[in-house]
Simulated assay, not measured.
Amino acid sequence: MTIDNFDKAILRCLQENTRFKSEYIAEKVGLSATACQRRIKRLRDSGAIKKEVAVINPEIAGKPVTLIVQLVVGRCGAEVLDRLKQDLIVLPEIQQCYNVTGAFDFVAIVTVKDMEAYEQFTRRLFFDKPAIKEFETTVVMEKVKVGLEIPI
């Protein structure tokens, strides 16, 4: 799918706030409300917009502790690795997870209530998984920037 400058402007508006009315977006980007609605539908249907969610304050949700966890996977077959990926995907404590190059195989952003909850999490995930050779944890002291906006 190709997107033009109108689509880019619409996406920028929606990344700012998905609750903007199409009339407001249309005015901002220089289109009619109907044309804007059609473009938004096309962007959703084509997968250009993957998901629309509410961003919840972790403190309000009772999960104020954020950790960056780096995993090293031991030598294992594709089946074991695929199972590990599925385990990482379904854990609600893991906010983001990346398969990376370098000294580590995966980097995960984890959100928990406190360090005791993190210890229980590590026991469930890391100590009971034969694929995980080692892990290293960094505790986030201050969230300087948090976001998922893509520069458009």
Rank of each mutant, 00 (worst) to 15 (best):
V90G: 09
Q120M: 11
M141I: 13
E142W: 02
P130E: 14
R83L: 09
Q70I: 00
I49V: 04
V80R: 14
V140Y: 05
E134F: 14
A108F: 06
T66W: 04
V107C: 03
E142C: 11
F104W: 09
L125Y: 02
K8L: 07
E116Y: 12
N17S: 06
Q120A: 12
R42E: 10
A26G: 01
P130R: 09
E134L: 12
F106I: 02
A61P: 06
V29F: 01
P130W: 08
L88E: 06
G30A: 04
A48S: 11
L81A: 13
A35S: 10
R19T: 10
M1S: 10
V146G: 10
L31N: 02
V65G: 00
A131N: 02
V110Q: 02
I3N: 08
D128I: 06
M1E: 06
V80T: 15
P64T: 02
Q15S: 00
V55T: 07
M141D: 11
T66I: 06
K50N: 07
D128L: 11
M115K: 12
Y98P: 05
P130Y: 09
Y98D: 06
L14G: 00
I150N: 01
L125P: 00
L88Q: 02
R38L: 13
I89T: 12
E79I: 13
G62Q: 04
I150M: 08
K21H: 09
E27S: 13
L31G: 03
D114T: 02
M1P: 07
V90Q: 13
D105M: 03
A26D: 01
E59T: 15
Q96D: 15
Q96T: 11
V29P: 03
L81M: 09
G147M: 01
E27L: 12
G62W: 09
E93M: 05
G77H: 09
Q86P: 07
S32V: 02
A26C: 01
D105I: 08
V53S: 09
R19N: 08
G77A: 05
L88Y: 02
T122H: 06
D7N: 04
Q86G: 13
L31W: 03
E116P: 07
V73T: 12
I150D: 00
A48E: 14
L11H: 00
K129T: 15
E52L: 09
V73K: 05
D114W: 08
E134W: 11
D105G: 08
V55D: 08
L11S: 00
